[in-house]
């Protein structure tokens, strides 16, 4: 318990996947079929069956994940195996295809599957590197607390700005009203906003001369700087959390498409025997 999926149970599933891959590769090397290696030889059928089985099993993870309280194997075992066997699948399926790629349904399956695997690898990278960044970025505050602090700063800003000149007041009001956190997918992924009204307001106040209201100007400035810092963190938070999820929008649809292509592939192969 309490270890990352990569080292889980002393690399048990890495060993499984390696064994499977090595055995497949060995057979591929010693096998000398008539003509070009392809899916139609005895080894091709065997590797194809293994690949197909693996694909269905890998997709079953989505179902297993939602079967709470059932089965005695912890989900971490499943994910660890899912990751390693998924990577092994890339090799086994390639061997099954005999390194052939064409413009047909079979290659479509191969490409869909590879996109699924690569998106999975991207997801794995995200899962391993981002949690720590996410926690460090938050520095002990939850998203809710950060939002509450921003709301409080906004209240202060509005109050102080009321006593200031019109231009400052307008810039500050814009900062409190038009600052966007999150937004569209691209905005979330960008993690910052180059047209952020808060930054603009800060620049404006920095550049302005408070004159007799210098004390207020300073108060305004400190709050704007604090808000900017919070915004930076919270946008980074949104970005990281978004990244942790966004890869699934590729991984899942392509895995379903690959399953559909798998069915077509198997049916056509046997239909046109």
């Amino acid at each position: 318990m309490h270890e990352s999926i990569l080292v889980y149970r002393k690399h048990r599933y890495l060993k499984w996947a390696l064994a499977l891959a090595v055995v497949s590769a060995l057979f591929y090397m010693i096998d000398s079929p008539l003509g070009q290696p392809n899916g139609g030889t005895w080894l091709g059928y065997t590797l194809g069956t293994i690949s197909g089985g693996l694909m269905v099993w890998l997709a079953w993870f989505g179902v297993r994940k939602r079967r709470y309280g059932l089965g005695n194997v912890p989900l971490e075992d499943w994910l660890s195996a899912h990751v390693y066997l998924g990577i092994a699948l890339a090799l086994i399926a390639t061997l099954h295809a005999g390194f052939q790629l064409g413009f047909n349904i079979h290659s479509a399956l191969y490409i869909l599957m590879m996109i699924t695997i690569i998106s999975g690898l991207v997801g794995l990278y995200f899962y391993i590197s981002y949690p720590r960044l996410l926690t460090e970025n938050r520095r002990g505050l939850s998203t809710e607390v950060m939002l509450a602090q921003i709301a409080e700063l906004d209240r202060d800003l509005r109050q102080i700005a009321m006593t200031m000149d019109d231009a400052t007041n307008a810039a500050t009001l814009k900062a409190t009203q038009d600052t966007i956190i999150g937004g569209s997918l691209m905005q979330q992924l960008r993690g910052h906003d180059e047209h952020c009204p808060t930054t603009q307001a800060r620049l404006f106040v920095e550049g302005s001369d408070g004159g007799p209201q210098d004390a207020q100007r300073r108060q305004l400035l400190t709050r704007l700087i604090r808000k900017e810092d919070l915004l930076k963190r919270i946008r980074r938070d949104v970005q990281l959390r978004c990244l942790l999820k966004v890869w699934l929008y590729v991984h899942i649809p392509f895995s379903i498409a690959a399953l559909a292509a798998l069915v077509t592939h198997v049916v056509t192969v046997f239909y046109y025997w």
Binding site: M1, H2, E3, S4, I5, Y8, K65, Y68, G69, G71, N72, P74, L75, E76, W78, L79, Y127, P131
Partner: peptide, 17 residues
């Protein structure tokens, strides 16, 4: 429920302990 606490068993990354 056989197997113990569901929250820990359902954690895919082993973060819950």
């Amino acid at each position: 429920i056989p197997g113990g606490a569901s929250c820990v068993r359902a954690c895919p990354t082993g973060a819950a302990l």
